[in-house]
Nucleic acid binder design. Structure first.
Length: 429
RNA sequence: GUGGACGUAGCUCAGCUGGUAGAGUCCCGGGUUGUGAUCCCGGUUGUCGUGGGUUCGAGUCCCAUCGUCCACCCCA
């Protein structure tokens, strides 16, 4: 055997056995989003590198070390999208969709980040990202969160908790950042290596440290929520009261900082204990400055993204997602005349019973083999087509899921006979 | 990028202080020459991740390398 070609690290095949969970999530999301007035948009997986640098921020980990960037034949630097929002905002601007108009959009597809794979974290992963552009909030903030909550309910997901915070406007955050840097620099000696590094690039992330030895220092640090500008304060208060009004439980986490620079004001994260270290299942926030930053006319926006692989993992933990058996009827064929006749017969049956799933025995085999395949196909009924039957103008029907004798039906009335045999089989299960 | 655990049949795994490979499952054939699942009998699974080294001898010990998983980091 020649050497096998290995799959690319961190990029997974989604196998048929997992598909039921994917479809459950995708169809539930699709239906719900449409019910909330969101329209699907599809944008390229590849964009100019500059787009992500400007949107996400030069000093974020994503841009600094996680992007799949390459130079194409024309010498341009292109990047496989590491997240969905930037591309959708670019599309809105490119297609002249602003001019005071408002848009509710969603976009699904693969994202790429060059990180070390681990549970719930892959180099190619899938997101459904949802964007509301031109809405100042806080009502839309709350509606989006309610949409998420409804989706979890519909999918039967337990134990997904909501955490929210406000990052304020870019200006108030800048002011707070100065206070924080002052504080952290005053305690330089207590900082661990990671935090010192963050202090340079993205000081707010120091607050996110998981190192227990940093706990006391972080707890005593000035709080972002206490340095919000009055409008942001009011906005956040509006979000909180509306969530309470809707009966959606949440926790204000003053240390919830997002990794992408474009967020402002409301940020939120749905987290779970069931997935190990990668606990965020869905997260997002406002990005009021982003569109202007990308060269569009200043327009507020908010959005979130859910990680499909993580939702699939959660859903499958709750119980197996059963893929329906692949066939209703399996057609067993015996003899040379029957073989040549069977393809035409099954095509006719498909015309007559378009909703039924037929599987024709392909590739020959003994009767024993064919019945074994029939059994494994999950079909409730086997239709036997042999030269004997053919000569008499009939086909034999054998129920596979219960002990019952075979019967025969004239070929001319086969579709009706199959329907009634399947009805009997269904009634008994 | 850093750390830890692990790589043996398609799958799940066993293999002791070094003596050239096993179970279950799956698949195939037969018992049943026109009948599955069950049962009985038989059969194929393999560069032991890869490359070196130590040794009379390596799945087992050592080194390197690749891969997987988990955690750090980061985030969906």
């Amino acid at each position: 055997m020649t050497e096998q070609i290995q799959p690319v690290r961190g990029m997974n095949d989604v196998l048929p056995a997992e598909m039921a969970a994917w479809h459950a999530i995708e169809t539930a999301a699709r239906e719900l989003l449409s019910g909330y007035g969101y329209q699907e948009i599809r944008v390229p997986v590849v964009e100019r590198t500059e787009l992500f640098k400007r949107a996400i921020g030069e000093h974020t980990d994503v841009v600094e070390k996680e992007m799949y960037t390459f130079v194409d034949q024309g010498g341009e630097s292109l990047t496989l999208r590491p997240e969905g929002t930037a591309g959708v905002m670019r599309a809105i601007i490119s297609n002249g969709m602003l001019r005071g108009q408002r848009h509710k959009l969603w976009c699904a597809g693969p994202m790429f980040r060059h990180e070390r794979p681990q549970k719930g974290r892959y180099r190619q992963f899938h997101q459904i990202s949802v964007e509301a552009v031109g809405y100042v909030g806080p009502d839309v903030d709350v509606e989006l969160i309610a949409l998420c909550a409804r989706l979890w309910r519909r999918l039967g997901l337990q134990g997904v908790r909501l955490e929210i915070n406000s990052l304020g406007t870019a200006e108030s955050r800048r002011a707070y950042r100065e206070r924080l840097v002052e504080y952290l620099q005053a305690h330089q000696d207590q900082l661990d290596a990671d935090s010192r590094r963050r202090l340079q690039g993205n000081p707010l992330r120091v607050l996110d440290s998981k190192n227990p030895q940093m706990r006391a220092l972080i707890d005593a640090a000035p709080l972002l929520t206490e340095h919000l500008d009055p409008q942001s304060q009011e906005h956040f208060q509006g979000v909180c009261t509306a969530l309470e009004g809707l009966g959606i439980p949440f926790r204000v986490n003053p240390r919830l900082v997002r990794g992408l620079d474009y967020y402002s004001r409301t940020v939120f994260e749905w987290i779970t204990d069931a997935l190990g270290a990668q606990d965020a299942v869905c997260s997002g926030g406002r990005y009021d400055g982003l569109i202007a930053q990308l060269g569009g006319e200043p327009t507020p926006g908010i959005g979130f993204a859910m990680g499909i692989e993580r939702l699939v993992a959660l859903l499958r933990q709750g119980g197996p997602c059963v893929t329906p058996s692949s066939a209703d009827v399996y057609i067993v064929v015996s003899g040379p005349r029957a073989s040549s006749f069977s393809l035409g017969l099954i095509e006719r049956l498909r015309d007559e019973l378009p909703g039924r799933r037929f599987e024709l025995n392909l590739g020959g085999g003994t009767l024993k083999t064919q019945f074994r395949r029939a059994d494994r196909s999950g079909a409730a009924l086997a239709v036997i087509l042999g030269d004997d039957e053919l000569q008499r103008g009939v086909a034999a029907l054998k129920p596979l899921r219960r002990e019952a004798g075979q019967s025969e039906s004239p070929l001319s009335a086969l579709a009706a006979a199959i329907e009634s045999a399947l009805a009997v089989a269904a009634a008994q299960t």
